[in-house]
Nucleic acid binder design. Structure first.
Lengths: 205, 205
DNA sequence: GTCTATAGGAGGATAGAC
DNA sequence: GTCTATCCTCCTATAGAC
């Protein structure tokens, strides 16, 4: 796998991420995208085979990292008696928040929000097959900490939490950081907001 | 305004709603759309002027009705001392749920979820100018019932509730109705789920 | 009001030179 | 690996007959 940020492949992926976030998968053309990356039009088909495979690689690059961090964080707390609901939510949310505040990854959550809205079967199958196990592992842990919820109730609430977080982190309603607050503090505060809200929702009577 | 469901305009709007929900605003072409409506290709430009104006009319048709119902429900309870958070949430959620279970409007919430993901400035300005007052009225009432929340906290939580509901009602995670449950009962149960979750989230410590 | 036909351009993909 | 040139399909929009 290529990881240097200077290869043609990486340049295409970065430009594609931004343009898919701003204009959607259909709305961003290979012509715009290759122009923004400073590479030739034919490079996409040479390196990725097709636009659809490029879209998959845009997800893979970020989700491998994001879900890796999530699983690492979860594995440190899963099954332990002193683990709280807030701990599990933090393991899920904080890696995404770190990603969405990195310069190079700040637009990815918007791409992810678009993918949810798309309802595209091919894309959903790709995401489910490659990253479905992450949601399942988190759900197992939520179930352990919320033993009074029926399976149906739990799925409902996890889904609502997912919706709230995707919406929030896609930057739609993200409250702007004030100039007297550091980037790191702002991220901490945002995480606290999201975790408090999600924990209360999951714990509803 | 045309309200008969048999006019060319209405046939186009209904077909457009379904195709925009399934394939997105860019993904659905005027050719697909007019073929599905059983009208001529040129009819869209004759009746609406352009594809963009058609998109606006798709929103207007449903949002006028949806937000009318919401405002009516809110006006019955706003400012009254016995009104609960759950009452206000019901006024917001139930009209949307009724719409999303009507045969003809079941796909509109997916169109709305796409609009959120789009981040398109023109579309967002259109929605804000025409329907922004609804969100503001509801927020006033939430503020009255949650006097301990700072303005910032309140906006955060209302935004998270919006995200959760849009996600849920766009049918992404909508739990299927079982055959021994009537449509009406299922809608009531869904509303209870959403309201309980949202009230708990808004009320978080 | 509704049709056919077409303009005029953008799209993804590829062949073949370098 | 990278380029140019091009194929062919699809798009929105409109002109003009009925």
């Amino acid at each position: 796998m290529q990881t240097s940020p200077h290869t043609t492949k990486e340049r295409i992926l970065t430009a594609a991420e931004e343009l898919f976030a701003r204009h959607g998968f259909d709305g961003a053309s290979l012509r715009q995208l290759t122009a923004a990356a400073g590479v030739n039009l034919a490079a996409v088909n040479y390196h990725f085979g097709s636009k659809d495979r490029l879209i998959e690689e845009v997800f893979r690059r970020r989700l491998d990292q994001l879900n890796g961090h999530r699983m690492t964080a979860l594995s440190r707390i899963a099954g332990q008696p002193q683990t709280t609901l807030e701990d599990v939510l933090a393991a899920f949310i904080k890696p995404a928040l770190e990603l969405s505040h990195e310069g190079s990854g700040s637009l990815f959550m918007r791409v992810l929000a678009r993918a949810f809205a798309e309802h595209d079967d091919t894309l959903r199958r790709f995401l489910s097959e490659n990253y479905g196990h992450v949601m399942r592992q988190f759900t197992v842990e939520f179930a352990r900490l919320l033993p009074d919820l029926s399976k149906e109730e739990l799925y409902w609430r996890v889904d609502l939490v997912t919706g709230a977080l995707t919406h929030a982190m896609s930057g739609f309603g993200m409250i702007q950081r004030k100039s007297d607050v550091t980037e790191r503090m702002h991220r901490e505060q945002t995480a606290e907001h999201l975790i408090r809200f999600a924990a209360a929702g999951l714990n509803a009577p």
